[in-house]
Structure formats: C-alpha cells, structure tokens
C-alpha cells in the first residue's frame, strides 16, 4: 500500500510538474484543453483525449458531468446534459481515464462538482482515479476553507488539488488558495460562468500580477479563452491557457462530419502555436 501511494505521488509530480518544467525550459505556455467526458460519445472520449494530446494539448481536462453545475455557461451545461443522457457516471469516466492511459502520458486533470466526489467517497475517488492515471482534480465549488477532507485524500493518493482564483479574490484569499494548490493555480479570467467571449477582460493582467507576487506555482487561465489571440495574451503573464467551451462547441457541431479530425488538429495547432508567441 505504501509503495503504491508513493507511486501515485510520483506520477503526479512526474506528469504535471514535469510538463510545466519542460514548457518553461522551452519558453512555451501550456495548452490545456477541456472536454466533457462522454460528449460527443463515451466510446470516442479516450481516442479524443489522445488526439488532443497528439495535436499539441499539454494537459487534458476531463469534465465529469454533474446535473446542477453553478459555474458553467450554456455550452458546457448542455454538453454535460448530453453526457448524462448518454449514461456517463464517475465509474464510466474512471474507465475512460484507464483507456486514455493506454494511448498517452498527457497529464489528465478531472473537473467536476464537489458532490460527485463526496458521494463517491473522497478517499475512494482519489484512490481509484489516481490508480487509473489521473493527475489532478478541480472541484469548482470547493473553496479551500471546506477542502481539508478532500486535500487529505488527494494528497495521500497523489492527486493534485487545483483551486480557483477569481477576479474578486482578495489578496488574503489569493495567498490562501495559492498555498492550498498543487499542480497549478486555475485563474478564472472574469466574474461569470464558463463560455466563449470575444475579448479578455482588461483587468486580467493585473490579476495575474497579484497572483504572481503571491506564489511561484504555475498559473493557467480559463473562462472565456477561445481564440489563439486570447492564448497569446494570457501566456504573457501566465503559464497556460485553458480552452473549454470553444472546443466543446466545436466537437458537438462537427460530430460525425467527414474531415473533423483534420479540422480538430488545425484548431489545436492554432492554439498551441499561440502558446509559443512570447
């Protein structure tokens, strides 16, 4: 048991930390791509994650769909709904993670609401997902004040605990969240729910500076990041950019269409190329 835990911890260090170390050395930002597990299809999800990694995604975020998400806009809400209707459960996602690991060593970060992990059993959730090959988890409605039981379970099994910082976070909270975070800090670009926007908020760079001065952990920016130009702007002061709704919408709209794989590759290439423009 002890050696297994050590192995899990090593994996997390290995995959997330080594990814950021490698990108830093190459002077690139991380391209983090979010997909909802099971949308457009359950069978296609592992291959999709592998395709994203092959096309240049540095980290894959896998959303475990929840019936009542508070922080998601229409794109991801509808995507979650489709996945739930297709029968996706945390157990299905566990198998997907195992399948993804047969294709690629890309770091896998789970994203979901706290209740699903709670109901699964925090210890069991961390244990089984770490064993399957997941590297971290973002529980979007779990602030650090409520996270002690989750942190204990996650640390034991080597799952990075990624917390969110928002534009409304005070300096005290930024310090608290940074302290509790492992893997990377998820910076929410704006007040609001997930979803594509035409522009990034002008206050973002100041927010990133505030986080930077409080922590030297990697920072990835999400919520409203959809275009290569956004990615370029983001990585000026951050270590990575998270693309979510734009990708989820693309996958839904092009599902089953001929030539989708090429279009997907081109899309990922365009985002990845933007992480190199410093």
């Amino acid at each position: 048991m002890r050696s297994l835990r050590g192995w899990g911890f090593f994996n997390m260090q290995h995959r997330l930390d080594s990814t950021f170390a490698r990108l830093k050395a190459a002077q690139e930002g991380a391209l983090v791509t979010f997909i909802t597990a099971g949308d457009p299809s359950i069978e296609g999800t592992p291959a999709l994650a592998a395709a994203l990694a092959a096309a240049g995604a540095d980290i894959v975020e896998l959303g475990i769909p929840y019936s009542d998400p508070l922080a998601d806009g229409p794109s991801i809400q509808m995507s979650s709904q489709r996945a739930l209707e297709a029968g996706v459960t945390p157990d299905t996602v566990l198998q997907m993670v195992r399948d993804i690991r047969t294709h690629t060593e890309v770091p896998i970060v789970l994203m979901t609401s706290y209740n699903l992990a709670l109901k699964y059993g925090l210890e069991r959730f961390a244990h089984l997902f770490a064993e399957a090959g997941a590297d971290g988890a973002i529980l979007t409605d779990l602030p650090p004040e409520e996270a002690a039981p989750w942190k204990t379970a996650a640390e034991k099994h080597g799952i990075a605990t990624i917390f969110l910082i928002a534009p409304t976070s005070t300096p005290e909270r930024i310090a608290l969240i940074a302290k509790n975070t492992t893997g990377f800090i998820y910076c929410v670009s704006r007040t609001g729910v997930t979803g594509t926007r035409t522009e990034l908020p002008p206050e973002l760079q100041a927010l990133l500076s505030r986080i930077r001065s409080a922590s030297d952990k990697p920072i990835c920016v999400g919520f409203g990041v959809s275009q290569p130009s956004h990615v370029t702007q983001v990585i000026k002061n951050a270590d990575g950019a998270v693309i979510g709704s734009a990708l989820v919408d693309f996958l839904h709209e092009t599902d089953g269409q001929p030539g989708r794989r090429e279009k997907l590759d081109a899309l990922v290439h365009s985002w990845k190329a933007a992480t190199r423009e410093t």
Binding site: D141, P143, E146, T168, S169, R173, I177
Partner: peptide, 8 residues
C-alpha cells in the same frame, strides 16, 4: 460550497 468568485 460555491465557486470562488462569490466567496468574497
């Protein structure tokens, strides 16, 4: 148990 944005 809410998103960070509204904790403040």
């Amino acid at each position: 148990f809410v998103p960070e944005t509204i904790i403040p």
